[in-house]
């Protein structure tokens, strides 16, 4: 917990060591609160200048689907916010090829530019991380 609440101090103590943080998104956007919560944590983490990457797999790929309109369900459409990540210097967005294909989607269906990687490539990236946060 101290790593989150005391992030600035932590950075000073360790002389600004950069850790690799991966956020793994596996849930569709509106059925549960996971996707929105993950996005908020990602935005906050950007303040600590760490090496941040986001992975979208399983139903998590639906978070990035273009053309979301939530007015009728009275929920906040947070899909435009993924396009703000670049301004936060978060540009490592990975989508699992298998999950995308299984759902009949292509990179053109997504609101942001992403790197499409195989399950194998994603597994290797995951193994390289210092911290993996799952949503």
């Amino acid at each position: 917990m101290s790593e989150v609440t005391g992030g600035v101090e932590m950075e000073e103590e360790t002389g600004g060591t950069v850790k690799k943080f991966m956020f793994v998104n596996r849930k569709a956007p509106y059925g549960t609160i996971y996707a929105l919560e993950a996005l908020e944590v990602v935005l906050i983490s950007a303040a600590f200048d760490q090496d941040v990457s986001l992975v979208f797999l399983d139903d998590g790929v639906y978070q990035l689907k273009k053309g979301q309109h939530t007015k009728a369900v009275d929920m906040k459409n947070f899909s435009p916010t993924y396009r703000a990540l670049e301004g936060y210097d978060i540009d490592k967005l990975y989508v699992e090829k298998e999950s995308l294909e299984q759902r009949g989607l292509t990179p053109d269906d997504l609101v942001v530019d992403v790197q499409v990687l195989s399950a194998d490539e994603i597994s290797k990236l995951m193994a390289e991380q210092d911290v993996v946060l799952s949503f």
């Binding site: 793994v24 596996r26 849930k27 996971y34 995951m126 193994a127 991380q129 210092d130 911290v131 993996v132 799952s134 949503f135």
Partner: peptide, 17 residues
């Protein structure tokens, strides 16, 4: 206790929720 030992032994944890 064994759970804790495993997290130490394997370093990073990925929770599949």
């Amino acid at each position: 206790g064994g759970f804790v030992d495993l997290t130490i032994e394997y370093g990073t944890v990925q929770s599949w929720l």
